[in-house]
């Protein structure tokens, strides 16, 4: 009997959907807009965070040793930096290595290579390449080095320009998030009202049938269920439409995103494919919350049983 009842409730839900076809379409459209705006917002957030991580990875400071520095001193400095809690990674680059790297980087620039050959000595100093855990720790590391007994064999630079790049990206991503939140909120409110109104109209157009249902002793559960199912149907279709729209869009723009992250281990499409079902489930979840919430309000408000 439960199965028969559930089957009939589903049938009524589909009937309601078809008999108010255009209203259903508009409701789904608005729900879809909400989902699209929330998804785009999340995508932009994800990309901005990724960009910040990438730029952060790029940031490091070079500490150069003066030519007077001895090998033991250099190792002592390295050990000194390594035991700082702020230091994530310390790399020692000897003068010879530095020269090799420099030559490699400028292999196409014949003028530079020629002028290097002119010099009798290696003009490049040995250095330590230091990476900190957080951006604001670089200054601390520099200050500690300057205050140490090694100060006279070191040439330190102040923390470089990458900082302002990171700040700009953070601010931009914050703005995007704020605008996205406002937009999502507006769309979410509109979808709540839309689903509410659609269910209300369905209840109104079916008032005769609902009256008869009550008269012959249909359970409240049975009378209400079709309207809940209708709301769930809207949510499911809206999620599918959203995915069908967003996935190709992301595939289309991904080469541009890829170009931005060139050389870094971040593949947007791979990320999407990896998390497809999670994203889909989140969208269904969000649209279900919206539409079930508003159909519930409409049902308790207009369906007195």
């Amino acid at each position: 009997m439960m199965i028969v009842t559930f089957f009939r409730a589903t049938k009524f839900a589909f009937q309601n959907f078809w008999r108010n076809f255009w209203l259903s379409i508009v409701t789904i459209f608005i729900l879809t807009l909400t989902l699209v705006s929330v998804s785009l917002l999340s995508a932009v957030n994800l990309l901005a965070n990724q960009a910040i991580t990438v730029v952060k990875e790029k940031v490091n400071i070079d500490v150069f040793f003066s030519s007077a520095a001895q090998a033991e001193q250099m190792l002592a400095v390295r050990a000194f930096v390594e035991q700082m809690p702020e230091a994530k990674q310390v790399e020692y680059v000897s003068a010879t290595e530095a020269l090799e790297r420099f030559k490699k980087e400028h292999v196409a620039d014949l003028d530079i290579l020629a002028s290097l050959a002119e010099l009798e000595e290696n003009p490049l100093p040995a250095s330590l390449v230091i990476q900190a855990y957080e951006l604001d720790q670089y200054q601390t590391i520099i200050d500690k080095l300057r205050a140490s007994s090694f100060a006279d064999i070191l040439t330190t630079q102040d923390f470089d320009d990458n900082r302002s790049v990171i700040q700009r990206i953070s601010i931009l991503s914050q703005r995007v998030t704020q605008i996205g939140l406002v937009l999502s909120f507006i769309f979410a409110t509109i979808s709540l009202l839309m689903v509410f109104n659609t269910i209300r109209i369905t209840i109104y157009t079916h008032r005769e049938e609902l009256n008869i249902m009550k008269l012959v002793g249909a359970t409240n559960w049975f009378i209400r269920t079709p309207f809940f199912l209708e709301g769930i149907l809207y949510a499911m279709i809206a999620s599918i439409v959203t995915m069908a729209f967003l996935y190709p869009t992301f595939v289309f723009v991904s080469p541009y995103i890829q170009a931005f992250f060139q050389g870094y281990s971040f593949d947007f499409i791979q990320f999407l494919e990896l998390h497809f079902w999670k994203i889909f489930a989140l969208q269904i979840g969000l649209s279900l919350v919206l539409s079930v919430l508003s159909s519930m309000i409409a049902i308790t408000r207009y369906l007195r049983v």
Binding site: M1, R8, E208, V216, G217, A218, T219, F222
Partner: peptide
């Protein structure tokens, strides 16, 4: 219950009108 204004569904046949009342109560 029998009312003055019948309360029959105009788009359903006699059979369907009565069947509807049974359907909504979960009859097979």
């Amino acid at each position: 219950v029998v009312y003055q204004d019948f309360k029959l569904l105009p788009r359903k046949t006699v059979f369907e009108n009565i069947a509807f009342a049974l359907e909504v109560c979960g009859a097979s």
